[in-house]
Simulated assay, not measured.
Amino acid sequence: MKRIFLASLIMLTTLMCFAFSKPKTEEDDSILVEGLVRVYGNEPFTFIGIVCDSGEEYSLIGDANVISELRNTQGKKIQVKGYQDEVKKTSDDDVPVFLFETLKNGKLNVIDWKFVK
């Protein structure tokens, strides 16, 4: 009896965990930006960002392989697709709090990128 109860409890718990998960689709909040890749900071504490023609600046984050590829495209015009991280705000007057390695428009999680001709 205890085994049946334990097995039922485990299956119910597993079902509850999967019932509340929601898969993220690419069309949710992904944005497409185009601009030049720049490296910011001093060695060994550098990070990369993208500067758009419209004046927007995003820090680029993602997989280590993707970031190293993007670092090699410094000074070239590229198009990046990704998800923008939420910019933290202070509770007092809703002024954005910028952390180290964050440019003025926040961070962009890179999904895909390509060169622009």
Rank of each mutant, 00 (worst) to 15 (best):
V116G: 07
W113L: 02
V116F: 10
F47G: 02
E34V: 14
V116M: 12
V95F: 05
S54F: 03
K88V: 09
M1S: 15
I111N: 10
P96M: 00
S68V: 00
S8D: 08
D29E: 06
K81W: 13
M16R: 05
V66Y: 08
T73R: 09
G49C: 03
K2W: 11
S21Y: 09
V37T: 05
Q79N: 06
E27K: 09
S30E: 14
D85T: 03
K77H: 14
R3V: 03
M11S: 11
C52A: 15
T14M: 11
E57R: 03
E27S: 13
I67Q: 02
G75E: 09
V87F: 09
L36H: 08
V37F: 00
T13G: 10
Y40S: 00
V51R: 05
F100L: 14
K114C: 08
A64Y: 13
S30K: 01
F5N: 07
L99E: 12
D112V: 05
N72L: 12
E56Y: 04
N65K: 14
S30D: 12
V110C: 07
F5A: 15
T90R: 04
N105G: 05
G62T: 06
V87H: 07
N42C: 00
V97N: 09
L99M: 06
S59A: 14
D85P: 00
Q74S: 12
V33I: 08
P44K: 04
V95Q: 04
T46M: 07
I4L: 14
K88C: 00
F20W: 06
D94N: 15
E86Q: 13
E26Q: 07
E56L: 03
E27V: 10
T25K: 09
S68W: 01
Q79D: 00
L12N: 01
G55T: 07
T13E: 01
K81M: 14
L12T: 14
F45I: 02
K88H: 03
C52D: 04
D94V: 07
A19C: 08
W113A: 01
D85G: 00
M11C: 10
G106V: 06
G35E: 15
V66Q: 11
I67F: 04
L15Q: 01
K89P: 00
E56A: 06
F45S: 06
V80M: 05
K76E: 15
D53S: 03
D93S: 12
V51Q: 07
P96R: 00
D93Y: 13
I111D: 10
V80P: 08
E26N: 08
D53F: 02
L9C: 13
K76F: 09
C52T: 15
I48E: 06
V116R: 09
V110H: 07
N42M: 04
S68R: 09
Q84G: 02
M1I: 10
P44R: 04
S8R: 09
D93H: 11
Q84M: 02
T46P: 01
W113E: 03
S8Y: 10
N72W: 08
D93C: 09
N72S: 15
V37M: 02
S54G: 01
E27Q: 09
S30M: 13
I111S: 10
L108C: 03
Q84W: 00
F45H: 08
K114T: 12
F100M: 14
C17E: 04
D93N: 15
D85W: 03
P96W: 01
S91V: 08
V66W: 05
F5V: 15
F5T: 12
S68H: 05
